[in-house]
Design a protein around this nucleic acid. Structure first.
Lengths: 205, 205
DNA sequence: AATAGTTATTGACATATATCAATAATTGTA
DNA sequence: TACAATTATTGATATATGTCAATAACTATT
């Protein structure tokens, strides 16, 4: 996990600002603020960008690459979300209130991220009230995503969950290891393998 | 499902406005707007307040009572959330984009609701930019709730899900039929019964 | 190109939970 | 109070998925 050289940090935040601007026009002041508070981070595949010990909440904008969130349940990892480019990811402070259920973040492709602290975001809301429009709209989208995750994981059969995933996140197939997808879908890798084998069989016959 | 007499509608919206004000101070203009757009609805236990055919999106503030959301999967109902007093509930438009997965809302206790259309809320955001602060904060909370639902339903064993539920939503035990809780927890009523019986057994021995 | 490490596949068997069914307890209502 | 309807409990059995294990297919590194 390395910070980029100063030269590149100068231009930092561009992608995040563009993301904001695509939601709602933003003033030059907000853009300057975001630029000032953003830091680029280049992270290698496999690295953890937050451990359960990490207290300060940070948000990450994925410029390039892929990140997953997971929790541990009796030593077993359970992937709770997987996100690629143009998404903001971060730990939900609240979930962590009880010790059992801290969330971990792992980069699962070599990635370029923009980091910003939760504190900076809050400061932005306070100083630039229009920023709340952006925040509100982003949260509306993320709420739907979370709801989709909740829905997906409630489908009673493993095969149905996989089919739903195929429908909603086809771009992730082949891009990331199946083991993460299996974990996200609440099944063992072996089960996912069998489901895929079965589906392939019916396709070719 | 009955509208209240005009006399009572006069005072309508009070509880919703109080809810907003508890999050962030609101101006008299916003309060007046909300009051004007709100309608009280008294709904009997068991009634559906939205069917999959219903196109106009509405939001409901629960003044008193309890509401659940569910989807149908091959004729089986899957409860995706359960909410009581002081919550805003509504259908997520997005989930409904594919035909399979429309969301239904059912009142599961005699309830008093405040209805407001999604359109009115959007109008509020547009006319009173400060309202976006409230919207943003409410969504932050609902995002965490949705995330908790996603987390809960990913716990691999039925017993763990029930224990998590006991920890997070103890007030619902005894208040609503177990069948809804079982459905919310992704298990059959019989399984929930057995888990409870087993846990009781260990408690008294 | 060869080797080591990771990821995916397949098989045999174990187990948690579903299903079906019968009964009991609770709740609503005439 | 009694009756009907709903909800909860318990048992016997079926089934989807997990577990463990062996091997195969990739991927990265020297």
């Amino acid at each position: 996990m390395t910070y980029l050289p100063n030269q590149l940090q100068e231009a930092c935040g561009f992608e995040l600002i563009a993301c904001f601007a695509s939601i709602h026009p933003i003033s030059e002041e907000i853009a300057a603020f975001v630029r000032q508070k953003s830091i680029y981070l280049s992270v290698k595949k496999g690295k953890f960008i937050r451990s359960s010990l990490d207290k300060e909440e940070r948000l990450y904008f994925i410029v390039k690459g892929c990140v997953r969130g997971f929790i541990k349940d009796e030593g077993q990892e359970i992937t709770t979300w997987i996100n690629g480019e143009n998404n903001i990811v971060g730990s939900i402070q609240n979930l962590g209130l009880d010790n059992d259920t801290e969330e971990y973040l792992q980069v699962i492709e070599d990635s370029l991220l923009i980091v910003i602290t939760r504190q900076s975001i809050d400061e932005m809301y306070a100083r630039f009230p229009e920023a709340n429009i952006i925040g509100r709209k982003i949260l509306e989208r993320y709420y739907r995503d979370a709801d989709e995750r909740a829905f997906l994981s409630r489908l009673p059969s493993a095969e149905k969950r996989y089919k739903r995933f195929l429908l909603k996140r086809p771009e992730l197939i082949g891009r990331i290891p199946m083991k993460y997808i299996a974990s996200y879908l609440g099944m063992k890798l072996e089960t996912l393998c069998r489901i895929r084998a079965k589906m392939l069989q019916f396709q070719t016959k």
